[in-house]
Design a protein around this nucleic acid. Structure first.
Ligand code: ZN
Ligand code: ZN
Ligand code: ZN
Ligand code: ZN
Lengths: 152, 152
DNA sequence: TAATAAATGAAAATTATTTTCATCTATCGT
DNA sequence: ACGATAGATGAAAATAATTTTCATTTATTA
């Protein structure tokens, strides 16, 4: 089952966060797309509608949302961070288009078995794993590039 | 089959790079450990033996080594980069100790099959994948912490 | 040994992110 | 609705990683 805009607002409030217009705007921006966005991109997107937010607040809001588990952070190849709304509640991974930045969630992670074998073989106590796939989405394969800049 | 110090020197030379003392020192530092290191850590390590290198040169040497395929770059959780000598020539992944930073190479990547299924399911043309595991190595589980700072 | 393309280092520039601190405001109890 | 207050915001400065610039040095090759 997926999170949605209302879920996030009420859960945030429940966790003691205030529902400011700035936070609503950031959540709304994340909710409006399946693309990942950097803090700066979110700032630009939000600033189109209201000049009423600063980049610092974007950073702080993303921190809060990440701590509360409502967004996924991508470690971009550039060394920067990309964020997107966390839609599946359960453990999952990301398939990211290198051209337009769209993200498809990959569920049914089958890596626990591999983890177990690695653990037995090395003696490591496993904490976590990361797994990301990059590729070209069908639309970009057809040349229908939707965004201007090259992502990732 | 694994790369070693001499392989790298001669291959670098073959690719047109000059073998400067600074480059030798960086390669030597990477070769001397199975831990990953940040550029700054490499700088500090190399600087103990000779005051004859600057941090900029570390960055430039790491760029060259990465382009030439002789080192692996880890996207650390902190958003910084960690580097280590690339020992297996073939496609592989990394199991990293969160405490001491030691890295174990995981060969026999079995993710191509998963990639194929994802591709069929989403229509994406797959370019690449990343897969990293973090955990606690046997020595750190026993409290034998070798390095001072917490890595990753 | 001389020529030269490449490499180096110091310093400045760039960029992402975080911190500081004074001001503002969402929320809650009255 | 009103006032108190903890928490949130924004401007500006601070931090930190990385890259660029440019004058000087050096590994390589003939
Ligand atoms: Zn996700
Ligand atoms: Zn997984
Ligand atoms: Zn490796
Ligand atoms: Zn793989």
């Amino acid at each position: 089952m997926d999170y949605n805009y209302k879920d996030i607002l009420s859960a945030l409030k429940h966790e003691g966060y205030k529902l400011t217009p700035q936070r609503r705007a950031v959540i709304q921006a994340l909710h409006s797309t399946y693309n990942h966005m950097t803090p700066l991109e979110i700032f630009e997107k939000v600033s189109i509608r209201s000049r009423n937010i600063s980049l610092v607040t974007i950073y702080r809001t993303l921190d809060a949302l990440e701590k509360a588990g409502f967004i996924c952070r991508l470690n971009l190849e550039t060394g920067r961070s990309g964020y997107l709304l966390r839609r599946p509640r359960s453990h999952h991974h990301h398939l990211v288009c290198s051209i337009c930045g769209v993200v498809v969630n990959i569920g049914n992670c089958e890596l626990e078995e591999l983890e177990k074998r690695v653990s037995e073989h090395t003696g490591f106590k496993i904490i976590s794993h990361t797994f990301d796939i990059s590729g070209i989405c069908p639309e970009c394969q057809n040349g229908k590039i939707k965004t201007s800049g090259v992502k990732i």
